[in-house]
Design a protein around this nucleic acid. Structure first.
Lengths: 214, 214
DNA sequence: AACAGAGTTGACCATGCAGTCAAGTTTCTT
DNA sequence: AAGAAACTTGACTGCATGGTCAACTCTGTT
């Protein structure tokens, strides 16, 4: 049975750990930093979790479902363009609401995803394959432009998470008063509206081979 | 004066250090790992560089110019659409040729860019501002679609670097035999061709503000 | 009040790691 | 060949860090 104090302290620890892990990476983070940030002593922290690994694992598992939800919510019965735009919007909202979580993931993946490999292979991959098949079907039916479905999904990840993951760089470039996400909505709306709209002028082939690539 | 042995060993060390730093981040990397990867002893490594920081700094400074070159090469006198597409292609090629360097940067920026702040503020920012002004001028002149120039630049960074930085994830999703960059060229060509093409039907104003953003 | 169990922590330990150093070996120059 | 300079390294130091533990305090229950 979990007590009131347990709930409060576990939450404190995980919140502090998210701050530290997302900013320093797993190896860069120290238990002392997490304890300090959470306002507890290090032994107390280890009273609630079995070790550094365990804290990190708890953060990741808490997060995995949240991370899949936007893609899960992509409705095969909905209007293709509306659904894709809505997915992009949800992912962008996640960069706004959960930038630390995004950076936690980015850190993990940058280092080869050692602690997420099984999640990616057994949960993310089948879901992506399924949604890619859906996107391909929509493209084949002419309801969206015939773009590669995997690259379409990756592009949404890249463009939305970039605002959370590279926040520091964007702030240094745009100036500290500027919110990196200002104008991102409008830009991405326009980008995906143009990208997935079914070809209006079907005869116009580009001057370069578009499908080339080794 | 630098000897033959110095040149060889410095190169070995930097190459090994790039492997290790890009895969583990600064704090995650150890001098022993770098020495091991480079086939030298740790004291020998410290004979050539003044410390861990110095090796990392040498890697970054070696890289900064390379990193700016693609954007520098964007020619104000060229055809806007051709120039932007060529910039995107150069950046994508860098993800292909220098994935470790891309991950080294990503690691740094994820952690708040502590060792790159002055570079970003004094070199990257003015260059980006300059090129953003150019893109804005092109948009105002109706030579490309009226998209926010900063977000356009950021989108190119996000989309191209994603293939290097999130390589591990893409491989796990697409299967190990699949090259993450397969088809990326074609996809990004299509995406940017559609995004920056000046509006074909000029009367049709979009339902949402496209140029919004401070 | 008083007891049990939950919660807390200062002091400590073992390991990992950046960096040093003295003593060695190799390479270059003449 | 031989001396100088460049190069190399085993052994070591000091500090940071993950984790432990015995002793302590607080909280809830009767």
């Amino acid at each position: 049975m979990t007590t009131r104090i347990q709930r409060r302290n576990r939450r404190r620890i995980l919140d502090a750990a998210l701050d530290v892990f997302s900013a320093q990476g797993f190896r860069g983070a120290t238990l002392d930093q997490i304890a300090e940030a959470g306002g507890l002593s290090k032994p107390n922290l280890l009273y609630y979790f079995d070790g550094k690994e365990a804290i990190h694992r708890a953060l990741l598992t808490d997060l995995l479902d949240t991370w899949l939800d936007p893609l899960r919510a992509l409705d095969p019965a909905g209007d293709p363009q509306t659904e894709i735009m809505a997915y992009m919007r949800r992912k962008l909202q996640m960069s706004r609401d959960f930038p630390r979580e995004s950076r936690l993931f980015a850190n993990e993946i940058l280092q080869g995803a050692p602690r997420m490999e099984s999640f990616i292979r057994t949960e993310l991959r089948p879901l992506v394959d399924d949604r890619a098949a859906l996107l391909r079907a929509w493209a084949t039916a002419g309801r969206i432009a015939p773009v590669d479905p995997y690259h379409l999904i990756f592009s949404i990840w890249a463009l939305t998470q970039h605002y959370a993951d590279f926040d520091a760089q964007i702030r240094m470039i745009r100036g500290d008063g500027h919110d990196p996400l200002d104008g991102a909505d409008a830009f991405l709306e326009e980008l995906y509206a143009r990208l997935i709209a079914p070809a209006p002028q079907k005869a116009a082939a580009g001057p370069r081979a578009v499908t080339g690539g080794a």
